[in-house]
Design a protein around this nucleic acid. Sequence first.
DNA 1: CGGTCTCTTGACGGAGTTCAAAGCTAGTGG
DNA 2: CCACTAGCTTTGAACTCCGTCAAGAGACCG
Lengths: 192, 192
Amino acid sequence: MTSGFEIYCHSHTNLSDEEIERIVSTAIPGSLQRNESLLQQGQVCRHKTFILKGLLRTYGIAEDGSEYILQFSTDNSWTLDAESYHLQSASQFNITAIERTEVLQWTRADFDRLLTDIPALNIYSLQLITRTTYTGRQRLFTTLSASPEEKYEDFVRTYPDLLARLPLHMIAAYLGISLKTLTRIRHSQLHR
Amino acid sequence: MTSGFEIYCHSHTNLSDEEIERIVSTAIPGSLQRNESLLQQGQVCRHKTFILKGLLRTYGIAEDGSEYILQFSTDNSWTLDAESYHLQSASQFNITAIERTEVLQWTRADFDRLLTDIPALNIYSLQLITRTTYTGRQRLFTTLSASPEEKYEDFVRTYPDLLARLPLHMIAAYLGISLKTLTRIRHSQLHR
DNA sequence: CGGTCTCTTGACGGAGTTCAAAGCTAGTGG
DNA sequence: CCACTAGCTTTGAACTCCGTCAAGAGACCG
């Protein structure tokens, strides 16, 4: 059986078939219902997760109880709370399924062993974390500098495919604006 | 001559004296006047930079010309535009000295060789980038969720030492609020 | 078909921004 | 060493955009 993960590895890494097979053999498959959580605030993030299909959000809860979304993760990408995973500390964030989601997971111990044994995986991991840093910077700059309208336009440009799969209030929670403002922007853009 | 860099390496890494010496021997020392730039928007970031003493800011310019600060970097820390450095692409950001600053720099080629040859340096680099990712997340969440007042309090808590070294308009540009609002907050906090 | 979730809209209030002016400070050059 | 200037900080007035509250219509799911 050739899974989506194997196809992904072939096109994004230099891993050999044997290496991929070894990686897959230690993976734990799982699936999440809509609204089911992969990780909750206060828990330790014990797995590295690859998303075969579906949609997750990583979010934190502000003091007043409102939700702010740091990241959406969809098909063929990785998700975890890096800090909690590496330090085995309590996570401040939640990761929850927006749609039914199929995942592969690795425990820290298993994945560390793979990293030690497979140099190509190590290189790929490094690329990944580097890219994460870039997009994070970009996101921070936009969040700081852009107006609500610019943020929305940027979101549409960057994630056109997500637009249809997300309720508006989550887009608002991602952009850091109120639902009201988001609706207002969308309304004003119709009349152009 | 034992430089601040060597002392730093001893306390923060597992590098041996010989390794440290090798690293230092390929470094290019430099110094920046107040307001002098290490990197300007559009240039390629050709060096990895360690700050011996001083204070730098990394910032971007929004479309309307205003400045937003992504990061302050001070004594015994590293700075660069990671994306520009790794991809040798044009940087979107500027890095400029706030105070007179003494640095050590390595070219990409030299540092890559060091990384290949010295495993302990590799491990340290990985820790560093991992920590960068954490703080970036934290920053994003605060930027999204906190009120201007909370942001300021958080800044004071996190960087008490920087407070005295920075003009207020830079703190405002870091927090993403107007100078006016920052003054108002500081004023209101006096009367408590 | 009933209920929950989602989206839109209106009225209102307020926090933050912009613009402008003026006092203060510190660094520079004569 | 002093005078001067440029940059820094504060403050005021007016405005505007965004958020909160509230209500209602529509869509989707069980």
